[in-house]
């Protein structure tokens, strides 16, 4: 065993790594785990058809993505950040502070959040108010609506006589997830506003109201199932009484074993999300650092691939993966933004 040889070899390897650091010949993308499945497909298609290196995509979450993206300009920082929500003002400021002045915002389509259960279970037709009452930690007392009490509902029937008499058991994402943020904003908040006493509360004390709709019950009716949506799908199959909350693409891929609930009269179909009639949907974005476009090879090609109708169009391959395409006019407008690389207005 010659120790000194090993040490020498290790040293040599580190030295050899030097040249590889100087430049970057691949696109670096970070951001939302919701956009990740779509961005990766585009990246792969781009890599295969162009023969260039396939972009590297990290699933960091929207917030984590912006943190890296806004870290500065240069090869050490990512070129593109995916987001399941629009960039926040504070993030834009952080970008600007670090010299990231010109950002191109690209909306790529919509994503629906579904409440689903096993195919074998009865179909649910719920309102967002029902979901709020089922999942909020504190709800108005049915006897005295001005008073908040710990959530007393054990079964769906107790909330709404038309719902099945089964135990409330919902598997959903943890607070770190973008899906959870969207769910709280699109379902819990709207559901809470449907209740008169809470509506009054919102006017009087917006903060207290926010606390009510943001706090999910912790008595076992809501189970945080981690970021792994596949796991939720499998658990739903095993337990027909349970409901699950996840992105539309998982419903789309597993339509033979699970089904989506009707929310406020609309089922989660591709069409309903695309035309906006399904209430729980959100736009998805990615953000491009304009300063990198001319420096890192392939960004333009990647953008062209993404905004091609064969990718993000109604019949494109992203639709196969569960992305809800934008209407033609919106898509056309976005494609123009991309081809001209029009930066968004920095606030």
């Amino acid at each position: 065993m010659n120790v000194s040889h090993l040490v020498a070899a290790a040293g040599l390897t580190i030295l050899m790594a030097g040249p590889a650091m100087a430049a970057r010949d691949y696109i670096s993308i970070v951001g939302s785990s919701t956009v990740y499945p779509f961005a990766t497909v585009v990246a792969e298609q781009y890599g295969k058809s162009s023969g260039a290196k396939t972009p590297k995509i990290e699933s960091t979450g929207t917030g984590g993505g912006f943190k890296l993206f806004c870290g500065g300009v240069g090869v050490d920082h990512p070129d593109i950040s995916n987001a399941s929500r629009a960039i926040k003002e504070s993030e834009m400021k952080a970008c600007a502070d670090n010299g990231v002045k010109e950002i191109v915002e690209v909306k790529i389509g919509y994503d629906g959040i579904v409440l689903a259960n096993a195919k074998a279970a009865p179909e649910f037709k719920v309102s967002r108010k029902d979901i709020f009452l089922a999942l909020a930690k504190e709800v108005p007392d049915p006897k005295d609506p001005a008073k908040l009490i710990a959530n007393p509902y054990k079964t769906w029937k107790e909330i709404n006589a038309e719902l099945p008499d089964s135990k409330i058991e919902v598997l959903g994402p943890p607070p770190t997830s973008g899906t959870r943020d969207a769910f709280v904003e699109l379902v819990m908040e709207v559901g809470a506003e449907k209740i008169d006493s809470l509506k009054a509360m919102k006017k009087a004390d917006a903060k207290a109201f926010a606390k009510v709709f943001q706090t999910i019950r912790e008595d076992g009716a809501y189970v945080e199932a981690g970021e792994n949506d596949n796991l939720i799908v499998q658990k739903l199959q095993a337990n027909p009484k349970a409901m699950g909350i996840f992105g539309f693409s998982f419903l789309d891929q597993n339509a033979d074993v699970i089904k989506g609930s009707v929310i406020d009269g609309k089922g989660p179909s591709y069409e309903a999300i695309a035309d906006g009639s399904y209430p729980v949907s959100r736009p998805l974005f990615f953000y491009v650092k304009k300063a990198h476009v001319e420096v890192i090879p392939g960004i333009k090609g990647f953008l062209a691939e993404f905004t091609n109708d064969k990718a993000w169009g109604k019949d494109g391959y992203l639709a196969d993966k569960g992305l809800i395409a934008m209407p033609d006019a919106e898509r056309k407008q976005m494609a123009e933004v991309v081809s001209k690389l029009t930066p968004m207005a920095m606030k």
Binding site: M16, Y26, A43, T54
Partner: peptide, 10 residues
């Protein structure tokens, strides 16, 4: 991260 290309070096 999603990395489709087989890495050639460290």
């Amino acid at each position: 991260a999603f990395i489709a290309d087989v890495p050639g070096s460290i």
